[in-house]
């Protein structure tokens, strides 16, 4: 062991002496050669640029969390502006005023036919039971329980969850359910068999449920087939992949109580 330590010490000493003398020689070249001075200067500048560039990239990487929060807030602002504009143009279709709140997913679980999310916003933040949870690329679920600081969201990727969607060119509306096999597939049910929707058409939320705002793109249509009950089923490829999500938007309908009272 002492012999090994001695060898290591000798290697380190040699390497240190080599670097020291090589730097000294380079410094002499730098001071005595005009062309070399400019060339070495350029080299040092390039190394500096690469080093500080990497440092900046690393800093940016560690600030991604904050930037994501800022971006989520910007998306929220855009959604609110869009919602306000739509309510001014087609007030009958928007079911009133939508309130948007960004939230971060603190936990998610995809297990069998039941999956859920826990969000970092709760009653204290104004979240209500029954609020919708969306992203700009689709529908995520419904708030099923609320505590002071957290919300439990029953995911769309669970058995029994439906979202009312619409295809614009045909005007067809139907319930969309999770296909149950993977996180990117859903099925549009109960379409009259004589109506065909070509593959590649965009499906958007219809707002008939009153939980989600209208016109959120959800996915594109795929193959269709006539089911045993005589209605057509259409496969849908969803835009959003829930397993990669970090931020979502909670949407509440400000006139929901009024609508529910009227319905009763």
């Amino acid at each position: 062991m002492p012999a090994r330590n001695h060898h290591t010490r000798r290697y380190v000493l040699n390497a240190a002496a080599f670097i020291l003398m090589e730097v000294a020689a380079l410094a002499l070249v730098f001071h005595n050669g005009q062309i070399q001075r400019s060339w070495i200067g350029q080299g040092i500048n390039s190394v500096n640029a690469v080093f500080w560039g990497s440092v900046e990239n690393a800093e940016r990487y560690f600030h991604l969390r904050e930037e994501n929060a800022v971006l989520a807030a910007e998306i929220l602002a855009q959604q609110q502006m869009l919602g306000q504009r739509q309510s001014q143009v087609v007030p009958d279709d928007t079911l009133g005023c939508w309130i948007y709140r960004t939230a971060q997913i603190v936990k998610h679980q995809f297990k069998g036919t039941h999956s859920y999310f826990l969000l970092d916003k709760g009653e204290d933040d104004g979240v209500e039971n029954g609020s919708g949870v969306i992203t700009p690329r689709g529908v995520i679920g419904v708030v099923d329980a609320v505590s002071a600081h957290y919300s439990y969201v029953r995911s769309f990727f669970s058995a029994g969850m439906t979202v009312s969607v619409r295809e614009d060119s045909t005007g067809v509306t139907g319930p969309l359910v999770w296909a149950g096999n993977n996180r990117n597939s859903a099925i549009l049910h109960n379409i009259p068999h004589h109506i065909t929707i070509p593959a590649g058409r965009v499906l958007k939320t219809s707002s008939f449920s009153g939980i989600y705002p209208p016109d959120i793109p959800v996915g594109v249509t795929g193959e269709s087939r006539v089911s045993t009950d005589g209605t057509r089923e259409i496969a849908v490829n969803l835009y959003e992949n829930p397993s990669q999500l970090r931020y979502v938007i909670i949407v509440s309908n400000a006139w929901r109580e009024e609508i529910e009272a009227l319905e009763q």
């Binding site: 003398m21 000294a24 020689a25 410094a27 002499l28 070249v29 005595n32 050669g33």
Partner: peptide
Amino acid sequence: GLVGLNAF
């Protein structure tokens, strides 16, 4: 010569 070049 350029001082330091041979040494380097």
